[in-house]
Amino acid sequence: MTIRTRSHEDSVLQMLRDDEAFALEYLSVALEEIDEDGGEDSFLVAIRRVAEARGGLLNLSQNTGLNRANLYRSLAVGGDPKLSTILKVLQALGVGMSKVVSHRAEEEACA
C-alpha cells in the first residue's frame, strides 16, 4: 500500500490558503516578534508566504496595482516597504492589519 504524503511546506501553504484563523495566527505571531533581531524580515516573509498561498505575487500585483518586481523586493529579507504598501497588501489578502493586530488581543482575552 502506498501512502501519499505532502511536504511540510505544501501543508503550511494549504493552511494559509484555506484556514483564515491559521493565516491570522501566522501573521500575528510574526508581528509580535517584529522588535526582535530579524523580526522585520520574518514579518515580511510571513506576508509573502500568505501571498504565495493565496494566488502568488503576480495575482497580488494585479489586485493591488503595485509593481510585481517591487513586491518581490519589498516582501523579502532586507525589504523595506512603505507602511502604505504593507496595508494595501494585507487588505488585498483579505486579512488587513487591524485583523492581524486584534487577533492576538482576542486570543489573549480568551485565555
Rank of each mutant, 00 (worst) to 15 (best):
A23Y: 01
S11Y: 15
Y26T: 06
S7H: 12
A69H: 10
V100W: 03
L66T: 00
K82I: 05
G55I: 00
E40Q: 12
M15E: 15
A76W: 01
A30Y: 06
H8E: 07
S42A: 13
E108S: 13
E108C: 07
E25G: 08
R48T: 03
V77N: 08
I86W: 03
E25P: 03
M15H: 13
E108N: 11
L24E: 07
Y26V: 01
V89L: 04
P81F: 02
L66F: 06
Y26K: 03
V100M: 07
S102H: 10
D19W: 11
Y72E: 10
L66I: 09
K82M: 05
V45N: 02
L16G: 03
T5H: 15
S74F: 12
L13G: 11
S61M: 01
A30P: 10
L93N: 07
S84W: 06
T85G: 06
S74T: 04
L27I: 02
E52P: 05
Q62R: 13
F22Y: 09
A30I: 04
L44C: 05
S98V: 14
R48G: 08
Y72D: 09
S28T: 02
A23T: 00
I34W: 10
A105P: 00
G79P: 06
V100A: 02
L83G: 03
A23G: 04
E33I: 00
S102D: 15
R73K: 10
R4I: 15
Q91F: 10
D41R: 02
R4F: 13
L90V: 07
I47K: 00
N59F: 01
V77G: 00
F22A: 09
Y26D: 07
V50Y: 09
A21R: 15
R17Q: 12
L27M: 08
V100Q: 03
T2Y: 14
A23M: 04
A51I: 01
L58S: 14
L58M: 13
S74R: 07
F22T: 09
A46H: 09
G38H: 05
A51Y: 00
T5I: 15
V45S: 02
D18W: 12
A76N: 05
L58W: 03
V101F: 08
L87Q: 10
E20Y: 08
Q14K: 15
V77E: 11
Q62T: 10
N70C: 01
Q14G: 12
I86Q: 03
T2A: 14
L90M: 07
G79H: 07
A69V: 11
A46D: 04
L93H: 06
D41K: 05
E106L: 14
